Amino acid sequence: MKTTPSIHIAGRRIAADEPPYIIAELSANHNGSLDTALKIIEEAKIAGADAVKLQTYTADTITLDCDSEEFQIHGGLWDGKTLYKLYQEAHMPWEWHAPLFARARELGITIFSSPFDTTAVDLLEDLDTPAYKIASFEAIDLPLIRYVAQTGKPMIISTGMADAEEIEEAVEAARSGGCQELAILHCVSGYPAPAADYNLLTIPDMMRRHGLVTGLSDHTLDNTTAIASVVLGASIIEKHFTLDRSGGGPDDSFSLQPAELMELCRDSKTAWSALGQVDYGRKSSEQGNAQFRRSLYVVRDMNAGEAFTLENLRSIRPGYGLAPKHLERVLGKRSSQPIKRGTPLSEALLA
């Protein structure tokens, strides 16, 4: 019998036959304030998210302080900045990690992070992170993936911009590095990304190709795409999360606010529970309404021995008589006894 792929993070089983695992991505939405970062974790817990995720890098570990053309950003949300300036503004100070991990554990919400180099992995290991997430832009950094894999922790790899070959290489790097619990996320690395770019039918194809827990890293502006992905087998949903979409930070504008995250947590689980299994039987919620189906009723008083015709027998509601499919068989047969108008037809009334 084929088993359902699964991983475990902090004791939570994640698989297609479990409710979706919801990750609130804090990213740069702290906007330079530790208090804001702490509040985001608290609101993620209130909303019902399973986990909150950080990003662990500094401007110096992710790029160079360089003003040449290749390091300039043109267009989009971050137009006019250099890579170094963007990441200097957006990064999570490393000294914040310990209090953020402590607060999440105090609240009972799982916390882990995306490392962007080996020194970030070392920091997260010191904090005993329960899992790792490889960001889409780092999915081609196979040495980093192998370094994370050797920790033995569960790993989630986001696949934005990666083609089929690059995804296969990332999966192989994780496996060869020793990762035993691996998940992959379908992703479009646009900020925001239009729903039409998501091609969600890719999710079941990824599941068939790789046999892994598969989910969605969603950068659309609402929850529709994420909830739809659950129907196609997504076991993990990751969304950026902020206290205020108009906060002015580098990621605020495409992030969910608290009420929206709460709706995602609720509605994705509703979508998952609606999937159920193949079942053509009558459901418990239908039992009381079976009486309102049609059935065969005598609609005129009849004498014993009188023939059933379209004048004295009809298919009407309620459903206590013989099913309408018996009409042609019954027409022309005779009654076994006198029958009053409004009587449901039964086999006992047929001579």
Rank of each mutant, 00 (worst) to 15 (best):
S68A: 14
D252P: 07
R334Q: 12
L327P: 06
L349P: 02
L256D: 01
E43H: 02
T118S: 11
T63G: 03
L201W: 08
T119L: 10
S255Q: 02
A131H: 09
C66K: 13
H97E: 13
T63Y: 06
P324C: 13
M161N: 11
R208G: 02
A135L: 00
V298L: 01
A307H: 11
Y87R: 03
S284Q: 10
L201C: 07
A51I: 04
Y21K: 05
S246F: 13
A37K: 02
A24Y: 05
S235G: 01
K153Q: 10
E89H: 02
M207A: 15
F101P: 06
T159M: 12
L107H: 01
F71A: 09
S176F: 08
R13Y: 08
E70I: 08
D67F: 01
D267N: 12
D50M: 08
V171I: 15
P194A: 12
I22N: 00
P258W: 03
I73S: 06
G321M: 04
D65K: 15
I237H: 00
K133D: 06
I237Y: 00
E260L: 05
W96D: 02
L313H: 00
H74I: 13
G319C: 12
I184A: 05
S246M: 15
N289S: 14
A37G: 14
T220H: 04
A90I: 03
D67N: 13
A139E: 02
P5K: 05
T270V: 15
V121S: 02
I236L: 00
I73C: 10
S113V: 03
L201R: 14
R266F: 03
M161I: 11
K81F: 05
D65R: 14
A307V: 14
A135G: 14
D251Q: 02
S335I: 01
V231G: 03
P20Y: 07
E125T: 08
I22E: 04
G321Q: 05
F241R: 03
Q287H: 11
A323H: 15
S158D: 00
S268V: 05
Y21G: 00
P338Y: 10
R105W: 01
G11Y: 00
A51H: 04
T118C: 04
S284Y: 08
